[in-house]
Amino acid sequence: MTIRDIVEGSDTGSGRWFDKCVFFLIIVSLVAMSLSTLHQLPPAWRAALAVCEIVIVVLFTIEYVLRIVAAEHKWSYVRSFYGIVDLVAFLPFYLSLLSVGIDLRAVRGLRLLRVFRLFEMARYSTAVTRLATAVKYARNEALVFLFATLVLLYIAALGIHHFEHEAQPEKFESVFHSLWWAVVTLTTVGYGDAYPVTVGGRIFTFIILICGMGIVAVPAGLVATGMSRAVDDERRAGRPEPES
């Protein structure tokens, strides 16, 4: 068994264990980073987290070197998406040692991107391919829907500015200021920081809320239709269903 079988062989037992260990290491590093932001943390805990950080960085560095050694085309790996993600996992720590006074803890949160490596595992490859095919099928319809959504956002911002500008000039100062309300309303989030107080504004908001239901439902329908077509393609091609 070679280093490549362990590091890159997600279809082997040792490769799957390696991926699981990397996933566990990612979770531990993110939890440790989050705990370090607590102001009331005892000094002993902070010391333990500092040691944990060093151990994690060393392990990530070793893994990065092993991946370079195992890669058939080493420079291609370094420049690839996963190569950059692997580098980001430990590079901020070394930069923080060189850059005194610069807090790079938020940058270390980019370690979460390494979770994308788990999608390389063989038992998920069919599902990921199916999702990519579904998005491809729905691409044209999604572009049309996106354009229609942008137009509707502008109409919503323009309309609410017309009805509410005089009553609430500080919240609906311009069409651009009203865009925040339009986005929050059309996506049915409704933070409540800006809302209509005039009769015309409330009627207009009711109409926009009805339209907002489609903003949420249509993309889901497009993807579902694409997934159905992707499954039909797999059945016609005689591909086996992915294991659960």
Rank of each mutant, 00 (worst) to 15 (best):
L25N: 05
W75P: 09
F206W: 07
Y137M: 01
A44H: 12
R105K: 14
C52W: 14
H165C: 04
A48Y: 08
G214Y: 00
V57C: 10
L35W: 10
S10G: 12
G192D: 02
F18Q: 09
I56G: 09
V85D: 04
V57T: 13
R4M: 11
I84N: 04
F93C: 04
T198N: 03
R4P: 15
A224W: 02
G221L: 01
T205G: 05
W181L: 10
R114I: 13
A237G: 14
L104K: 05
M213C: 03
Q40W: 07
Q168T: 03
L158Q: 07
M213P: 01
P196Q: 09
I155R: 05
I27W: 07
A47Y: 12
S96Q: 06
F163N: 04
F145L: 04
P240I: 09
T225N: 01
I160T: 04
S96D: 03
A134P: 07
Y64C: 10
Y191S: 15
G238C: 14
W180M: 12
A237M: 14
S10Q: 10
F163C: 00
A220L: 04
Y195A: 11
A122M: 07
G9M: 11
Y77C: 13
A138M: 01
P240V: 11
A167V: 09
V128D: 04
F24P: 10
V223P: 00
T225C: 01
V218T: 05
L150H: 11
T185P: 06
A220D: 03
K171Q: 07
L150P: 14
F119N: 02
M33V: 13
L158A: 13
L131Y: 10
A194V: 11
V57L: 07
D5I: 08
A167G: 06
R108L: 08
P219H: 03
R130V: 12
G13P: 07
K74R: 15
S34C: 12
S34G: 13
R111Y: 06
H73C: 12
R139C: 02
T205A: 07
A230C: 02
G226A: 01
H161Q: 08
G109D: 13
S80N: 04
P43T: 13
A230G: 02
T188L: 00
S244R: 06
M227I: 05
N140R: 01
V135N: 02
T187H: 00
F204P: 03
T185L: 06
F18L: 06
V58A: 10
K136C: 02
L143R: 05
E141L: 03
L95M: 04
R229Y: 00
I56S: 13
Q168A: 05
V199N: 10
V22E: 00
A138K: 00
A132H: 11
I56E: 14
A44D: 14
I102C: 12
G212M: 00
P43V: 14
M1K: 08
I3T: 15
V128M: 06
G190D: 06
A217E: 01
S14Y: 07
S80V: 06
V58R: 05
M1V: 11
E53P: 15
L38I: 09
Q40M: 03
R16W: 09
